[in-house]
């Protein structure tokens, strides 16, 4: 899976949340706040690390706080990628 579109990044994050926080993907709304899924600072940092590896960029962990929904985070990540 290459993460070159917002949709692909969204799907990657949804899969992570499903696995890490045990929430079924059908329950995950990309416009909901990440905090509402029970994302802790530890699971957030793990996600940042995984995304860094997949996208091959450095990501400031604060990006999650600045863009706290899956869709907003995905757009911000794509912007970073295209820079």
């Amino acid at each position: 899976m290459s993460l070159q579109t917002v949709e692909a990044i969204e799907e990657y994050i949804v899969t992570y949340i499903e696995r890490e926080l045990h929430i079924s993907s059908s329950e995950i709304d990309c416009d909901m706040s990440l905090g509402a899924f029970g994302m802790s600072s530890k699971s957030g940092l793990k996600l940042v690390g995984l995304l860094e590896d997949r996208l091959d960029i450095r990501i400031d962990p604060k990006l999650i706080f600045a863009h706290p929904t899956i869709s907003r985070l995905s757009s911000a990540l794509l912007d970073l990628l295209q820079k």
Partner: peptide
């Protein structure tokens, strides 16, 4: 401890 998936 109940989580969303378990609840459903």
């Amino acid at each position: 401890e109940l989580n969303r998936a378990l609840k459903r």
